[in-house]
Structures are given as C-alpha cells and as structure tokens.
C-alpha cells in the first residue's frame, strides 16, 4: 500500500498537504515505468521557476528517461514557492525515495479541495487496471 497521508492523480503525481502549502512528487510506479527499472535511465527533470502560478492540473514540468518523457501535472492549483533543485542533478533520488526526499515542488495552495483527487486505495485500483 502506498502512503495514505496524501492524494494522487491517475497520471502518477502525488500531493501532500500541510497547512496552506503542499508538496508534489511522482509515485514509485511512475519512476519504474519511465526508467524500466534501470535508475540510470532517468536523465532529465525540468522544474518550474519559483513564483509561477499553476492552474488546476496544469503541466509544470517534465521528466525524461532515455526513451520516454512524461509531463508533470499539478493535482491542485497554487503558486510555486520552492523547488527541489537537488533532483535536477541527482535523479537517482527519485528511485531511492520518491515519497520524501524525491519531492519535486512545493506550492502555496490556491484551492484545498481534494474531492477530485484519488486516495491511496483508489490510486492502487487504477494501477491494477494497468497491468
């Protein structure tokens, strides 16, 4: 079971809310899909500038492996207040710890309504239909 302290998108992003802010990352499944299990195959992550306002489900960046690329979408709207710049040079962090050290951006939430998002159980269900 994946962490229950956060919400998910079927496109494999997670969001963890604390107070007015939230941290966003991608799931272990996304990392595995992109890198086909070979962490050396993750090659590039493009994150937004601090201060950018993201609308609901807006694409804020991209992550690439050697032969795949995936958009990064925000589960909730808000202003980017911090990015995890360590990721850009050390993509292996994403394989090691996608849930904590592998966070991508922190936003100041413009809307905290999580009703459209998936909880961990619902996300697991979408994965089951994948394989």
């Amino acid at each position: 079971m994946r962490p229950t302290d956060r919400h998910y998108l079927s496109s494999h992003e997670w969001i963890k809310i604390s107070g007015d802010n939230a941290v966003i990352g991608i799931t272990d499944f996304a990392v595995e899909e992109l890198s086909s299990g070979n962490e050396g195959d993750l090659v590039y992550c493009d994150l937004p500038e601090v201060g950018r306002n993201l609308e609901e489900s807006e694409t804020f960046g991209e992550i690439e492996s050697v032969k795949a690329v995936s958009d990064l979408n925000t589960p909730l709207p808000g202003e980017v207040v911090e990015i995890n710049s360590a990721i850009e040079d050390h993509l292996e962090i994403l394989s090691d710890d996608p849930w904590d050290r592998g966070w991508l951006i922190k936003i100041r939430l413009a809307d905290k309504d999580t009703s459209k998002l998936l909880d961990a159980a619902a996300y697991e269900e979408t994965l089951a239909s994948h394989s």
Partner: peptide, 8 residues
C-alpha cells in the same frame, strides 16, 4: 551502451 550517460 550506457545511453543514460549519453544524455546526462
């Protein structure tokens, strides 16, 4: 070949 390295 290490194709990841060729990009990184």
């Amino acid at each position: 070949l290490d194709e990841g390295r060729a990009v990184r």
